[in-house]
Nucleic acid binder design. Sequence first.
DNA 1: CGCGTAGTTGATTGGATTCAACACGTGTGG
DNA 2: CCACACGTGTTGAATCCAATCAACTACGCG
Lengths: 232, 232
Amino acid sequence: MYEALELVPEAPLVCMPADDGEMLFAKDDWCEHALEIRSGIARAVSYSRGGDRQVMAFFFPGDIIGLPLFDAHRYSAEAVSGLRFARHPAERYRMGKEHYDQSAQKVAGAVWQEEKAFIARGLILGRVGALSRVAAFLGYLAEHLADEDRTMPFAIPQADIASYLATSPETVCRTLRGLRDRGLIAMTSRDRLKILDPAQLARLAAEGRTCRDVETTRFNSQAMRPKQAGRR
Amino acid sequence: MYEALELVPEAPLVCMPADDGEMLFAKDDWCEHALEIRSGIARAVSYSRGGDRQVMAFFFPGDIIGLPLFDAHRYSAEAVSGLRFARHPAERYRMGKEHYDQSAQKVAGAVWQEEKAFIARGLILGRVGALSRVAAFLGYLAEHLADEDRTMPFAIPQADIASYLATSPETVCRTLRGLRDRGLIAMTSRDRLKILDPAQLARLAAEGRTCRDVETTRFNSQAMRPKQAGRR
DNA sequence: CGCGTAGTTGATTGGATTCAACACGTGTGG
DNA sequence: CCACACGTGTTGAATCCAATCAACTACGCG
């Protein structure tokens, strides 16, 4: 009865639509519902005093966001485009409550799934150079919403991509054009993107331009080198 | 700041030292112990195929790392400098096990504490320009290991800082010097850093150089603006 | 004392931001 | 149906910043 992350049938989980740009929940708000994304894309946003805004993560169909690791939401979430979602009572996912509908393992898995989105951005931003960041981002997108034909809906405003990648919209546009000209990707329509050469794209993401010290000091330095063998 | 998360007294928790650079646990390894940092600094590292290395997070005294959100470790951890730590049996922190030594709330709090370190890097890397990134990093450091005099041990190799900030060691050095020349920080010794002007530093972190579109499109754009009021 | 490493500084070059202008699609109202 | 405004994406030119290469200093340790 409790297998999978299946929704419990007792509550009639309607699939609600959200307008583009609509806020789904706000940081520090009480965590009432967890949201399961049915279609479209959502974004996690950080507003700092000072007025600057950062897109911290994107979420895709199948993701469950707003899980009550705490009582309060850890970030603000907004709809990007074409979002439809279902609400789950947060109590179901609250840890340590005795009335588990889900096993704690499942809850932990869902939390980890949510956190991975934030960590992924860190790894992407860790790469220097717009080219490798964009390439890594496309690879990340493909993992989440590419079909068997390596085609995916690409309904994310370039301003959001720019904020996510910590670069300017112009650079995003130029880089995408560069990838298109080199035949690595194709954009048939405004909102459809096809990855033509995943291997080359991954290579760009990896070697695009890595900090020099990584190669050099890694094998010379002592403080750098892990002394315990056997990592991967 | 880290109240509670108290260790259970039953096991004699010895405080083990680690050599600088020593690997504490490896990604994907079975999660046997959680490590409580008693002194010094540790780092989370990501090794990708391709040989590039990224410092994803720093951890400080009081932090508990390697918590078993899953069975396997989610990242590799290494000692940076002067690390002493205590091992806690991972079972204590495994979610959903019936034999809680800690309440699930405590476990969730510890997990969140650990995850925050990774998310903090994303927010720091989201800022463009080396100056704002370094300033934001110093502010983050100060939150975790500054004493009442705003002085803190600064025993992190600049190569690690550079990797963490996705920049080059030279730029880190130059930026620190710039901050020193402007009287915002002082480095009495090689490994002690004092923050002289926290307000100015925070200002630099915020406005250092924000992507232009943030200001302009935020108030004009429709897709950008959250339609539900009352965030913050 | 000499070696190795980390840190520092200068000069150069390439890349990204920025400003500006324009193209394109969409929805609205005349 | 067309004109228009508006937002988004696109492209060009100029400036500025940061990566890079190279040389040097400071420091810790045998």
